[in-house]
Write a protein that binds this DNA or RNA. Structure first.
Lengths: 152, 152
DNA sequence: GTCGCAAACTTGAATGACTCAAGAGAAGAG
DNA sequence: CTCTTCTCTTGAGTCATTCAAGTTTGCGAC
């Protein structure tokens, strides 16, 4: 618990950011709720710090995403989600049925598809891969109960 | 171009959709404005058909995306964009500076990265790849050099 | 320790892409 | 031509996210 807090403090300081209660709470919440959306993070933060404003959470999330402390993912048709696993070039599996997101490592290697056929003069620094499909639960559900939500 | 209109009509009919003025206008606008957002498509549609409602455009775009007549792309932090190039598994190059989007074919082949290391039981039907980077103009602008060519 | 100030936070309102709803209008099968 | 059903219009509503203004606080400097 406490040494985790020390780690988060260190993370903030090395990023040149001030250490504050709301920020520690946001970092902690993102760590314990991978792929959560802003709403869920606000709720999680308020469990330990009820007086934190939604604005502070958004500010923190944006700042952290900007500085690379966490990663924002936003599948089409969905709201933004956040995760603390950064810098390891992993990708995401998204269920078209229920929106479930899972992490996956790419089969090709550490930097998959980083070389498109024609880079049009761009300097490329990241390849983001989203695999679209159906999760096991939704596949089962399709033969019985009606689907969930987030249909496309 | 009348034969282009015939093609669009055919496209709608084979998708089991009724042929209407607004729909033809939307298909045409997406074709001539690749990677445009809904707003721009509404504006383009209204050049030829001023009385079309924004709702009709959204309905059309959603229906077309659902039926595979066009593709919706939505880089994180940006609003949805649409393109008429479908079914050829191409990907996108997105500039972090100005949001410019360009099509790219994947170097790996027709179905890049369709096999993640662990599919968690998912049935995967699409791999979406976004290359993030800086376009030539934004790179020049950053070093004070004169711009390159016209934005898309 | 405490001063000063930029960074961060709170409160509250605003924005804007997108959706919902209800009724009118038109496509197209029979 | 007629009828059914799909599509369109109008107008209001939603909701994630941002903007703005004023207050508080972290923390380097004295």
């Amino acid at each position: 618990m406490d040494h985790a807090r020390i780690d988060l403090e260190h993370l903030l300081r090395t990023a040149g950011l001030r250490v504050t209660g709301p920020r520690l709470a946001v970092l902690d919440a993102v760590g314990t709720h991978p792929h959560a959306e802003a709403d869920q993070i606000i709720a999680a933060v308020r469990e330990s710090a009820p007086r934190v404003s939604h604005q502070a959470v958004y500010d923190s999330l944006n700042t952290f995403a900007e500085r690379g402390l966490l990663r924002r993912i936003q599948p089409r048709g969905a709201v933004a989600r956040y995760e603390s696993r950064v810098g390891d070039n992993h990708h995401h599996l998204v269920c078209r049925g229920c929106g479930l997101i899972r992490d996956v490592d790419c089969a090709v290697g550490l930097a998959p598809c980083l070389t498109p056929a024609n880079r049009h003069g761009f300097t490329i620094d990241e390849a983001e891969v989203i695999y679209w499909g159906t999760c096991p639960d939704c596949a089962d559900r399709r033969t019985g109960a009606p689907p969930h939500e987030l249909r496309e």
